[in-house]
Amino acid sequence: MKTLRFCLAAIPALALTAPAHAYWEYGHQTVAQIAYANVTPKTRAAIRRLLAQTPQLDTPTCPATTIEGASTWADCVKPLKNADGKPRFGYAYNWHFQDVNICAPFSLEEACKDGNCVSAQIKRDVAVLRDHHASGKDKAQALVFLIHFVGDLHQPLHAGEKGDKGGNDVAAAYGEYSPRRFNLHSIWDGTLAERAITSGPSLVRRYSPAEKARIARGDVDDWSRESWQVAHDVVYASALKGDPCGPSPAKVTLDEATIEKIVPVARLEVERGGLRLAKLLDRALG
């Protein structure tokens, strides 16, 4: 089971002192902003109405009345406790990822057993949003989960791994930056994601119908396989300098040449997440 890690990545050096398990704020917010910019006006109005109902979720320390707040709500609520001291949202822990072995044929059967994986919950949230009998509170919660989980699915180490807790067990250096507890997962979660998002023109814009059709094609299972393939072909291959299924060294280093090579891939994953989220939202609410 993956180690619970989430941080507010305003400053990477601070963020790395605490564990996390999702895109840092910037990645999730950017995915959400891309989606919001590309849904239909009708869908955008429906999103605003549902976000206005999120105070019913009774999580005042994790406001979700904006698209940016909604994008990080599912991580923000992880530490919240019930009166008995147990995690209030502990049931959703496994919904943020799916541990599909990159060194075996692709299959969601075991990783998504009993629906406890990110792709299964994306489908569930869409179904709740489309259910005319669902309450406003249930729809509001489904919306904020959906916004977050689509972002998670497009972080490749949430979709594929090789028995190392999604890269959490792989110590790593990012260029010359190698603080204690830095690992392969945290690189793709934050440092690399932030660099990718800020490289080149803004990803938050209106995309053409042709761009949206090309980037958002397929369904959730297709996207799961694609993200798993990126984990195999890019994440582990670049970290291990060759065979992604070879033995992992005690520590891997992503040098500057490697970082430059994989930045476009990380950037595309954010773009894919945003436009595919827009597609799902239009289908559910538009």
Score class of each variant (00 low, 15 high):
Gly160Gln: 07
Gln141Phe: 12
Phe97Ala: 12
Pro79Gly: 08
Val144Arg: 10
Ser186Val: 11
Arg130Pro: 02
Ala142Cys: 11
Arg124Lys: 15
Asp189Lys: 12
Asp125Ile: 06
Ala111Trp: 06
Tyr93Arg: 08
Gly160Trp: 01
His132Asn: 08
Trp188Asp: 10
Arg124Cys: 08
Val100Tyr: 02
His158Ser: 12
Val144Gln: 07
Ala134Gln: 08
Tyr93Ala: 14
Arg195Val: 03
Gly90Lys: 03
Ser119Trp: 02
Ile147Val: 15
His185Phe: 11
Ile147Arg: 10
Gly151Cys: 11
Pro179Gln: 03
Thr198Tyr: 11
Ala111Cys: 13
Val100Ala: 01
Trp188Ile: 10
Arg130Trp: 06
Asp84Phe: 06
Asp84Ser: 04
Leu157Ala: 10
Pro79Val: 07
Arg181Gly: 06
Asn94Pro: 11
Phe97Arg: 13
Lys162Ser: 02
Val118Ser: 10
Asp152Val: 05
Asn183Ser: 08
Ala171Val: 02
Ala104Asn: 04
Ala92Asn: 01
Pro87Ile: 04
Gly175Val: 13
Asp99Thr: 09
Gln98Tyr: 01
Val118Ala: 12
Ala127Asp: 13
Leu146His: 06
Phe106Gln: 01
Asp189Val: 05
Pro156Ala: 00
Ala142Asp: 13
Ala134Phe: 09
Pro87Arg: 13
Ala172Ile: 02
Ala104Glu: 15
Tyr91Phe: 10
Ala172Cys: 02
Ala83Asn: 08
His96Phe: 07
Tyr177Gln: 03
His132Pro: 00
Lys123Leu: 13
Arg88Gln: 14
His133Ala: 15
Gln121Tyr: 11
Lys113Val: 11
Lys86Ser: 15
Val170Thr: 10
Glu176Trp: 06
Trp95Asn: 15
Ser186Tyr: 11
Phe89Val: 12
Trp95Gln: 15
Tyr174Ala: 08
His96Pro: 14
Lys113Trp: 14
Thr198Trp: 04
Glu109Val: 14
His133Ile: 01
His132Phe: 02
Ile147Gly: 05
Lys137Ala: 15
Glu161Met: 03
Ala171Glu: 12
Arg88Ile: 13
Arg181Asp: 14
Trp188Asn: 09
Gly166Leu: 00
Thr191Phe: 01
Ala120Glu: 12
Cys117Ser: 04
Phe97Ile: 09
Asp189Ser: 15
Cys103Met: 00
Lys113Met: 14
Asn116Tyr: 04
Lys137Ser: 10
Asn101Cys: 04
Val100Cys: 02
Leu157Ser: 04
Tyr93Trp: 03
Gly163Lys: 00
Ala111Lys: 13
Arg88Thr: 07
Arg180Ala: 13
Asp131Ile: 02
Gly200Glu: 06
Leu153Trp: 02
Gln121Asp: 09
Pro105Leu: 09
Cys112Gly: 09
Ala171Arg: 04
Lys81Val: 10
Leu108Gly: 14
Gln98Ile: 01
